[in-house]
Design a protein around this nucleic acid. Structure first.
Length: 477
DNA sequence: ACTTGCGGGGATT
DNA sequence: AATCCCCGCAAGT
């Protein structure tokens, strides 16, 4: 089976026999076919904070990335990690969220918008067809991962529990006031330690031990999240990580299942064993969590991000147009539509923290990057108004070059993506190589950072991963 | 209080 | 016409 389809194709493959395991952190121009029974796919889930975007096409659900909320001062948490909150999906909630302060240094929070797709946010497309749920992503996130949804939910529920606990609510009020809250854990317990530490900061270790999954039996505890502090107003969205003690031991192994147990939501995603729908040759798995691990280890560790968020981009929100213009001129090293991004390249960039935003677009790199231009999304599909009209009519076999192109791409070896011209999203010419070249620069810049790590645990926590630990880990796919 | 989807509509290109 | 994005509504959690 090859990936010969495009989300916009009138007719999608119907003969899918094997489905992909759900991918929480997709990144890059990837495509997956999930079973229509996959809960996560049904919910159009993503680790990234994706909001619904109206594309006026009922057949295809489009969602765009909101980026990540960070401390405007880019302070380091006690353990060196950075604050990376999940932007609220709801506009109102997000605005509120941004008014809160960093729990670590009390400075303002800042939303780093995603501009990974030609200056626009990365987009995810979902389409149900037959027994399958087709997923296609466009763009490469140019920002750190936010908390995963499950993480956020777990934290919230934990907070609720805390709040409801008279005991805590009282205590907390006394202690929490300003600073020192992280250290004043009223009731530190093993769970706290294990949960908090590992999930957010074990990424590195994780990469080294991608398959270790049973290190934290305690994670299975339904109550893994006992937050010492409860969060009220500004604390509400605080990442649990803040209080996590710097427990190095945790780094060693990441509790892959911590959240899974805590949040069953992701459990259902693994019914389809490692079968890869896509051609193994396609590196699409770049996003694959497992992969991310390895690559992370190398880079993320020592490299840290740029010291400050003084991101070159101006406002934190929506200045897309401006960027777009810039991008169109090739100034910004945009990642084009190469279908697959090599894991390494991809993750490097992530790990180094504030990826491209800082480094990429920086004046220094543009030259290195070969231009990319692209169009974003084509929804050449049936507009909503006439949903029933056609859709994927049986006879409509409009094979617009797209699909063909895709297939070609798909078949190309993972390594060949570089310098490939990918017709897919409208001729985007992307040079992965050039892209990679920029990495070093990024890393250097990131030196200021101290151990910035992904707060989001990488994918280890996904069940599928557990069931198919080596799926991508060995780089086979 | 949020998340999700839907769909109208405006702004750009 | 294509695409994006913003907004509000409704239904679910």
């Amino acid at each position: 089976m090859k990936l010969t389809w495009d989300i916009n194709d009138p007719k999608l493959p119907q003969d899918t026999k094997q489905y992909d395991a759900f991918q929480e952190w997709t990144d890059g121009y990837v495509r997956y076919i999930y079973s229509s029974e996959d809960k996560n796919a049904q919910r159009h889930l993503s680790g990234w904070a994706m909001r619904n975007t109206n594309n006026h096409n009922c057949q295809i659900l489009k969602k765009s990335c909101l980026g990540v909320v960070v401390c405007s001062r880019n302070c380091s948490l006690p353990d060196g990690a950075k604050l990376q909150l999940r932007p609220a999906i709801c506009d109102k909630a997000r605005q509120k969220q941004q008014k809160k302060l960093c729990l670590n240094c009390n400075s303002a929070l800042e939303l780093i918008p995603c501009r990974g797709h030609s200056g626009y946010p990365v987009t995810n497309f979902w389409r149900v067809d037959g027994k399958a749920i087709f997923f296609q992503a466009k763009g490469v996130h140019d920002h750190p991962r936010p908390e995963s949804k499950s993480e956020t939910e777990a934290r919230r529920s934990a907070v609720k529990r805390r709040m409801s606990s008279p005991h805590f609510s009282q205590k907390r009020r006394l202690v929490e006031p300003e600073s020192g809250r992280y250290h004043d854990m009223a009731y530190p317990n093993i769970h706290q330690l294990t949960m908090e530490g590992p999930e957010r900061f074990s990424i590195i270790a994780e990469s080294n031990f991608p398959i270790q999954t049973q290190h934290y039996p305690s994670f299975q505890n339904p109550e893994p999240y006992k937050f010492p502090y409860d969060t009220t107003a500004s604390m509400a969205d605080a990442p649990s990580s803040l209080q996590k003690p710097a427990n190095h031991r945790l780094y060693m192994t990441r509790p892959p299942c911590g959240y899974d147990f805590a949040v069953p939501g992701y459990l259902g995603s693994g019914p389809y064993p490692t079968t890869l729908y896509k051609d193994p040759s396609s590196p699409q798995t770049e996003t694959d969590p497992n992969k991310s691990g390895p690559s992370l280890s190398g880079v993320s560790h020592g490299t840290s991000p740029l010291g400050s968020h003084e991101r070159s981009y101006t406002e934190t929100t929506g200045k897309h147009h401006g960027w777009k213009q810039i991008l169109s001129k090739g100034a910004y090293g945009e990642r084009g539509d190469y279908t697959q991004l090599p894991t390494n390249a991809n993750h490097h960039y992530y790990n180094s923290d504030y990826p491209c935003r800082y480094t990429g677009p920086a004046p220094a790199t543009p030259a290195a990057l070969q231009t990319i231009i692209t169009t974003t999304t084509k929804v050449s599909y049936q507009p909503c108004p006439k949903p029933s009209v056609v859709k994927y009519g049986e006879n409509i076999y409009d094979v617009k070059g797209l699909s063909n192109c895709n297939s070609v791409l798909e078949e190309s070896s993972p390594n060949s993506y570089s310098d490939l011209k990918i017709p897919e999203d409208s001729g985007v010419i992307k040079s992965a190589l050039s892209y990679q070249d920029t990495l070093p620069a990024k890393i250097e810049r990131s030196e200021n950072f101290e151990g910035y790590r992904y707060s989001s645990y990488s994918s280890n926590s996904y069940p599928e991963r557990m069931s198919h630990p080596f799926r991508y880990d060995n780089g086979e796919y």
